[in-house]
Amino acid sequence: MYSFIKPRVKKMLTTELLMVFSFFGITFFMIFATYGFLYLKTTQYKESMLEYDKKVISLKNEAAIMQNKIAYIEQEVSQAEQVYTKNSVLKESIKNLFDLIPERIVLSKVQMGENSLVLYGVTPSKDVYEFMLHAPLRSIFHRTYSDFYPISGGWYRFVSTNYLDEEESTHDNK
């Protein structure tokens, strides 16, 4: 040491350099801040897109489930309509059947099948049955069989079995 005083601390950065570094520092900061902001927003948009995609898939699934439910309900409606139609037809058939039965003949039992009709009852005579019941039955059914059992008072218990042939029945439906 040769000097009575110590040298002043030398700062590497002069005022001009500090200004230059400040300028570039601020510039880079703004660039990186903008980049960071955009990156953040992009990330947020991507996350939103993923969420929306998930929602779309979820809604599609729900829509599919709803479609299935709608199809099932439509099927039920269709079935209900069929049942209702069948019932209506059946009701109409029964009404027609009872309209067909003459007042002098008393039915005790009716068995209705898909293509068959079995009537149990009593008739005052075979002729009454023959003319008043058997004739309209033959016009409706393809095959008609009648069995009589005499009971007291000259009356006859009868069993009338009537069939519609399958092919002809289908053809008739058409």
Partner: peptide, 24 residues
């Protein structure tokens, strides 16, 4: 050796740009 007051005077004399070394 030197007197502190003399060194201080020298430093204040050149305080516009300052001194780093004062040698005997």
């Amino acid at each position: 050796y030197a007197q502190k007051i003399d060194i201080d005077k020298l430093e204040s004399k050149y305080d516009r740009f300052g001194l780093d070394f004062i040698y005997p």
